[in-house]
């Protein structure tokens, strides 16, 4: 419990900043929706005149055009996933490696607590902070949708379903980060690692959608929880989502095992 409290205290500022800026980004994006609306009818008739395959090729769908409220929400949420992924992988890389980098590992590990308990407390602390951000995103999404919906009546069940993916999405990145940080010798700079993971995966997923290639889609959590797919179909893309969920489940015993046997660098 002490470690949990201490870690949360250390993360206080970071939690505060992320809880403020991520929802702010989403709201900022969503507020430009009225500008998109414009000439809806002309767009719709144009969209209708093209076959579905062509639209899919360019990441558009006649069921969910970008100028509809939910289509635009899907797009904005897709953008918000980038900072969420970076935050989660940041915590994943940071939380165990920081002790070795700042030479506090000796102190912590000589306390009468098992390594398993240290890992568990830190995991919980990170999960708590990720959940705080998650809740903030959830509430602000619903609020901003209510404010700008006008006379459209969006399907809130699907919106909630999209928002419910956040926890898996965050944990997938967190787990990958954690696993890498316990399997390599030294995490020299957390930021380069988490940027590479968060943005690299985003690049892969957008490459995947431009080229409509399935190999890219399997690799990256961004495609596992594609908001547009959920908004159209009303359920998760389970074939892909299961990959992320497996990563999360497997990573817990694996990182425990690796951390237990880790040769900790000390002074």
């Amino acid at each position: 419990m002490n470690i949990f409290k201490f870690e949360l205290g250390m993360m206080k500022k970071s939690i505060f900043l992320w809880t403020f800026f991520v929802p702010f980004g989403l709201v900022f994006y969503m507020l430009f929706f009225p500008m998109m609306q414009g000439d809806t009818e002309t767009f719709q008739s144009l969209m209708d005149s093209f076959p579905e395959e062509f639209l899919a090729f360019f990441g558009m769908s006649s069921e969910l055009p970008v100028f509809s409220l939910l289509g635009y929400f899907g797009l904005s949420f897709g953008m918000i996933q980038i900072p969420l992924a970076i935050q989660a992988s940041n915590y994943g890389f940071h939380i165990l490696s920081v002790e070795e980098r700042e030479l506090t590992a000796d102190f912590l590990l000589s306390k009468p607590i098992s390594r398993g308990k240290i890992l568990f407390s830190k995991y919980l602390a990170a999960l708590t902070s990720l959940t705080i951000v998650n809740i903030a995103v959830w509430i602000s999404s619903l609020l901003v949708l209510l404010v700008i919906k006008g006379d459209e009546s969006p399907n809130f069940t699907n919106v909630n379903l999209v928002l419910s993916t956040t926890v898996f999405f965050q944990l997938a990145f967190f787990s990958i980060g954690l696993l890498i940080s316990v399997s390599i010798k030294k995490v020299s700079s957390v930021l380069s690692f988490s940027m590479a993971l968060g943005f690299g995966m985003f690049l892969l997923s957008s490459f995947g959608s431009i080229l409509s290639s399935n190999i890219f889609k399997i690799l990256t959590p961004y495609s596992h929880f594609d908001p547009e797919y959920i908004l159209i179909n009303g359920h998760y893309d389970w074939r892909l989502a299961i990959i992320s969920i497996l990563i999360i489940i497997i990573s817990i015993p694996l990182s425990y095992f690796l951390y237990k046997n880790r040769n900790i660098a000390s002074l």
Partner: peptide, 14 residues
């Protein structure tokens, strides 16, 4: 970097 990138995408969209 991230906020300017996201802003740049938004500019492209609207």
């Amino acid at each position: 970097l991230m906020s300017t990138f996201m802003l740049s995408i938004l500019i492209g969209m609207v």
